[in-house]
Amino acid sequence: MHDDPPAGEPARARARIGLGLFALYVALYAGFMAVVLVRPDWLAARPFGGTNLAIAYGLGLIAAALGLAVVYMVACRLVERRGR
């Protein structure tokens, strides 16, 4: 039989954290897409010590994905400890 779906305050709190971080990443991703689609010339600028914005933003999105994933993991652990 199926396990019960996640329930209770800890599960809801984890879901809220997940959706919040998801919204943050979507904003970053959408921002990148907007620049690529609307002002691609901006991506040739070099605001970060010589590396252009296209590379910096792309690497930043990858780093942000990992950073937010770690934040989520830690936050979920804290929520679970508090729930106990």
């Binding site: 779906p5 996640p6 599960a11 998801f22 991703y29 296209a54 994905a65």
Partner: peptide
């Protein structure tokens, strides 16, 4: 650079998997 756009898109998909999909899928299935 355009090949890297695919990389960015492919990796971003994992954010959906982690924040939205992982827990319910594991708990329900």
């Amino acid at each position: 650079y355009d090949g890297f756009l695919y990389s960015i898109g492919f990796l971003a998909g994992w954010i959906v998997a982690l924040f939205v999909i992982a827990e319910p899928i594991k708990a329900l299935g």
